[in-house]
Design a protein around this nucleic acid. Structure first.
Lengths: 231, 231
DNA sequence: TAGATTGTTAATCGATTAACAATC
DNA sequence: TAGATTGTTAATCGATTAACAATC
């Protein structure tokens, strides 16, 4: 009754042409990916933008617009094949590839990242952990030896590291970032409380935890009047 | 030569009236706060929207528009007094208050948060750490004892906990969230890979690390053509 | 085929930038 | 006062939502 899965395979040709995708769309893709992954686990085969919109609390229009930035993944009268769409978004996000990654800063946060096994499942391989503190030298986290930061240049080159997570204090991060870039790191996942200055061909993705907590605190203090009055 | 600092004190009256501030403005406030804090440390007394815009890489217009959502903090011909503006944004963000906080999930990430001393400096006091794993019972992190989650209801009530950081796996987080809410927690800092469903008067601030890494990976794979061709 | 739902265009809404009069 | 810079209005730009023809 519903069209065969294979018909989807041919559709991708359409999407090849490149155009700049807005940041806000890119930000929503991982969430689509997560919901589709959950649906896949529940053995859901197909879903319409309407159903997905209800599930995710966004408009169906937005879902269709977002997806059509990358090509026509759906089918009129049918909706979207969950598995196919999941895989396609995975490819768009670059999750079909493998990345060599290091963690610089072996404190609690760095170790938390190192221990987060799921990253490796998604193709992000942690090849090394570095710190400035000589006391940590030689210790291991999940089998990965902690090295000193003076070994960084050689290590990055030898292991073709593309991604570095920076879980150091501000001052350390600012010293280390240029070293990473000089030796070929293409993307920095920055947990330090500072805006790193890097060449335009290097990606910086910031995770500013204290800023996130401040947003929470703002919202806690600015609940809708009707709610604050209830108390 | 420049007007006395005290003249600023009277300006706040203007800002009292309430209107809904857009999410994107609120998101920028902590960054302003960070830059102003840095300027303060450098003993900078005053700054114009033009100078700040250059420092931060945003337009002066945006800075002035953002600030004027909350009132007139500047002075024509002078600019903004750094210390005053820093304090005012702090108040807007609710950083002049004190919050009782717990961490639920004593894994690496939970411990990383517990060890992050700066939160306490900003008024976020960590009163307890909880986990489901009985092996962790009684251990301490930075002097704070790890308790079992069945103690949560009583603890939240007794210590008037307003904020809970959820550093548990998805399934645990979904079970714990309603318990937190029932017992009076007003805001959840959610690190679990799931969208929590809570009543509208409860704040949820999400930190989805894997989604952040996916954004990085997207950007790594979609650099400007000119850059990718260079290689 | 008829019904459902996409892909896409057009309308609306909101956010950013520009411009400038007000004013310190 | 004259110069500088804000606060704010108006213009532009971009993102979201609505609507519907295309089509499976």
């Amino acid at each position: 009754m519903f069209p065969d899965f294979n018909i989807f395979a041919g559709k991708r040709g359409k999407a090849v042409e490149e155009h700049e995708i807005s940041k806000v769309v890119v930000k929503r893709l991982p969430r689509y990916y997560r919901y589709l992954g959950d649906l896949l686990e529940k053995k859901v085969e197909r879903i319409s933008s309407g159903e997905l919109s209800e599930l995710m609390g966004v408009t169906a229009s937005q879902i269709r617009q977002d997806l059509n930035n990358f090509g026509g993944f759906g089918q009129q009268g049918y909706g979207y094949n969950v598995k196919y769409l999941y895989n396609e978004i995975g490819k768009i996000l670059g999750l079909d590839k493998v990345y060599n990654m290091i963690i610089v800063g072996a404190g609690n946060l760095g170790q938390a990242l190192a221990n987060y096994v799921k990253f490796e499942k998604r193709g992000f391989w942690i090849k090394g952990i570095f710190d400035v503190n000589p006391k940590l030298k030689g210790r291991t986290v999940r089998g990965i030896e902690i090295r000193m930061t003076d070994e960084l240049p050689q290590f990055i080159r030898e292991h073709e590291i593309q991604i570095a997570a920076l879980t150091l204090p501000k001052s350390g991060a600012e010293v280390i970032a240029p070293i990473l870039v000089e030796n070929g790191v293409k993307a920095i996942w920055n947990f330090a409380h500072t805006d790193l200055h890097v060449p335009p061909n290097v990606i910086v993705e910031n995770v500013h935890l204290s800023e996130s907590l401040m947003q929470l605190s703002y919202n806690l203090n600015h609940l809708e009047i009707t709610d604050t009055e209830k108390n």
